[in-house]
Amino acid sequence: MQRVNMIMAESPGLITICLLGYLLSAECTVFLDHENANKILNRPKRYNSGKLEEFVQGNLERECMEEKCSFEEAREVFENTERTTEFWKQYVDGDQCESNPCLNGGSCKDDINSYECWCPFGFEGKNCELDVTCNIKNGRCEQFCKNSADNKVVCSCTEGYRLAENQKSCEPAVPFPCGRVSVSQTSKLTRAETVFPDVDYVNSTEAETILDNITQSTQSFNDFTRVVGGEDAKPGQFPWQVVLNGKVDAFCGGSIVNEKWIVTAAHCVETGVKITVVAGEHNIEETEHTEQKRNVIRIIPHHNYNAAINKYNHDIALLELDEPLVLNSYVTPICIADKEYTNIFLKFGSGYVSGWGRVFHKGRSALVLQYLRVPLVDRATCLRSTKFTIYNNMFCAGFHEGGRDSCQGDSGGPHVTEVEGTSFLTGIISWGEECAMKGKYGIYTKVSRYVNWIKEKTKLT
Rank of each mutant, 00 (worst) to 15 (best):
N5W: 08
T16S: 07
G21T: 14
L23D: 03
S25W: 12
A26E: 02
C28V: 04
T29E: 14
D33V: 11
H34T: 14
L41N: 05
G50E: 04
K51D: 07
E66G: 03
F71C: 02
E73D: 01
N80G: 08
T84A: 13
T84I: 03
V92S: 14
D95W: 08
G106L: 03
G106D: 03
N113V: 09
S114C: 08
P120H: 08
F123G: 04
E124A: 12
D131W: 12
T133D: 15
I136D: 14
K137P: 07
N138M: 07
F144I: 04
A149M: 11
V153I: 11
V153A: 10
S156F: 12
T158Q: 13
Y161M: 04
Q167A: 08
S169D: 10
A173N: 08
Q185H: 14
T186G: 11
T186Q: 15
T190L: 07
T190F: 09
T190D: 09
R191H: 07
A192H: 10
F196E: 14
V199G: 11
D200I: 12
N203F: 06
T209D: 12
I214M: 08
Q219M: 15
S220V: 12
R226A: 08
G230P: 11
P235V: 07
Q237W: 09
Q237M: 09
L244A: 02
G246S: 11
G246A: 09
K247N: 15
V263T: 03
T264K: 01
C268Y: 01
V273Q: 06
T276S: 11
G280Q: 02
T287G: 11
E288Q: 07
N295I: 06
N295Q: 13
V296N: 00
K311Y: 05
K311E: 06
N313A: 13
H314F: 07
L327T: 05
S329R: 10
P333F: 00
C335A: 00
I336V: 09
D338V: 04
I344W: 08
F345T: 01
G349Q: 05
V353T: 09
G355D: 03
W356Y: 15
L367S: 11
V368N: 07
V374S: 04
L376C: 02
V377N: 02
S385Q: 14
T386R: 08
T389L: 10
I390N: 11
I390Q: 08
I390V: 14
G398D: 04
E401K: 13
G402A: 15
Q408Y: 10
D410S: 10
G412K: 03
G421H: 07
I428G: 00
S430I: 12
W431D: 09
M437Q: 11
K438G: 14
K440L: 04
Y441P: 10
Y444C: 03
S448E: 07
I454P: 00
I454A: 01
K457D: 02
K459E: 12
L460Y: 14
